[in-house]
């Protein structure tokens, strides 16, 4: 580890930070209570982690044609990941998956005290707009 150049140190710091953010994102996917809050962990914390690792690899690569290709991957991930998570969340909302919402005082760390009803898929009916209140 002692034979690192300065650039290699910087890129190693970026890669370690990025993997740390991805680890937190993965933990969030397991820990968070409902689908919509899991989307935050899975798609946003992860996106930042991926961007940090790719920036680290770009610093390692230096100024070559592969750096341009890595920049394409960077731009693609930054644009595509939010669109993918938005599409998934909208599909869930359209099929009637209710978000689990609560105030801080109703939350004991693993479940909601006042309202423990699990979110369930209900079919939206065309005739009654009140039935589709999501």
């Amino acid at each position: 580890m002692s034979d690192f150049t300065v650039l290699e140190w910087i890129s190693a710091v970026f890669i370690v930070l990025g993997i740390g953010f991805m680890l937190i994102g993965s933990i969030g996917v397991i820990r968070l209570p409902d689908f919509y809050s899991r989307t935050h962990a899975a798609s946003k914390t992860d996106t930042l982690g991926i961007l940090l690792v790719i920036v680290g690899l770009m610093i390692l690569e230096g100024f070559t044609i592969n750096m341009g290709k890595l920049a394409f991957v960077l731009i693609f991930v930054a644009l595509a990941n939010p669109i993918g998570s938005h599409a998934l969340a909208r599909a869930a909302m359209d099929s009637g998956l209710k978000p689990l919402l609560f105030r801080k005082e109703e939350w004991d760390g693993t479940s909601v005290i006042a309202d423990s009803k699990k979110p369930s898929i209900v079919k939206k009916s065309k005739q009654s707009p009140s039935g589709g209140s999501v």
């Binding site: 996917v29 992860d46 982690g49």
Partner: peptide, 12 residues
């Protein structure tokens, strides 16, 4: 969502 999270990390 889980499958998507795995796929995006595989890129890196």
């Amino acid at each position: 969502l889980g499958a998507n999270a795995m796929a995006t990390k595989t890129i890196v």
